[in-house]
Computed example of a mutant assay.
Amino acid sequence: MTEPKTPHLSNIEKWRKWKTEKDIEAKKQLIEQYLPLVDYVTSRMAIGLPKTVSKDDLYSNGVMGLIDAIEKFDYERGLQFETYASWRIRGGIIDGLRQGDWVPRSVRDKAKRIEEAYQLLEQKYLRSVTDAEISDYLNVSEKEFTGILQEIAVTTICSLEDPIREEESETRLSLLVDEKAKNPDYKVHEFYLKESLVKGIERLTEKERTVVSLFYYEELSLSEIAEVMSLSPSRISQLHSKAILRLRGALAKNKDQLLQNT
């Protein structure tokens, strides 16, 4: 005797049955429906990661992020689930990468030094600083600076998911995704942090802004961006790294100022 087929539910009906009735079958259907999103995010994040990082592991962690998104998403708010889930999937993958400690401490230290250099020099000069000025501050040649950027490139792919401060859970991306209404004090902090992000983007060079826009908003891969801009993939990787390190420095500076004023 064959088992009766599970009825195919409409999308809104799946969400209703899962959220209001805790129907496990509806949840399974939602997971299956959005698994291609995990494939997409995993493929994008795998670009530039060391070959030692298993894509299967990335996918598994991404699925956990998807499940987390389905459990926490409020479908009645009329928001786009794909956008919300993409951040949760990325978060799941990055949590897995952190647990695997895939980036050597020395590489993280180099990234931190450059981030601090951007933060201090751009605060001092009130403008976008050049590679020569950063190299001089770090006491390295411009060629060595370029090599360092290439070395730390893989760390900047995930950097917007990192906490603003090491001891906190608030991430830079949390400034861009409004999951629930926050209290007034939080909204004030959020406003100034978003303002800092906007100012940081304005301080990027034209090429850096283009790379950030194409990668994070148009969702092109680094190799696709290289083709669009007629530059080498390694050059695009360097531009991306510099852009992210500038933004991280700007956000960290703003966060410190807010803490001093509270």
Rank of each mutant, 00 (worst) to 15 (best):
N254F: 10
V129D: 01
A252M: 11
V107W: 08
S232F: 00
D95R: 04
T52D: 09
K27W: 11
E167T: 08
T146V: 12
N261F: 13
V177I: 12
T42G: 01
T20V: 10
S213G: 08
Y59W: 08
D56H: 01
I93Q: 04
V228L: 01
I244P: 06
H189S: 07
E168I: 02
K194E: 06
P50H: 11
L37C: 05
V211E: 10
K5P: 15
E3T: 15
T6F: 13
R203M: 15
S54H: 07
V103H: 03
W102G: 02
R108H: 05
E161P: 04
L259T: 11
V212F: 10
D109G: 05
K180R: 10
E168C: 01
S223D: 02
Q29D: 15
D178P: 00
L160G: 05
I134G: 06
L173Y: 09
P184I: 11
E218W: 03
I93A: 00
G62R: 07
G200I: 02
T171G: 08
L214F: 09
L197D: 03
T146Y: 11
S141M: 13
K19M: 13
E13R: 12
K17G: 03
S232C: 02
E195W: 06
Q33A: 10
S10W: 15
S60T: 12
E224V: 01
W18Q: 07
E218T: 05
L58Y: 03
Y118H: 11
L247V: 11
K5S: 14
Y75G: 08
R44W: 02
K112H: 09
L214N: 07
K182C: 06
Y192F: 15
N254V: 14
L160W: 09
M229C: 05
I134V: 15
L121E: 00
V177S: 05
C158T: 13
T130Y: 13
R246W: 02
L58K: 02
L120V: 11
G65L: 00
L231R: 01
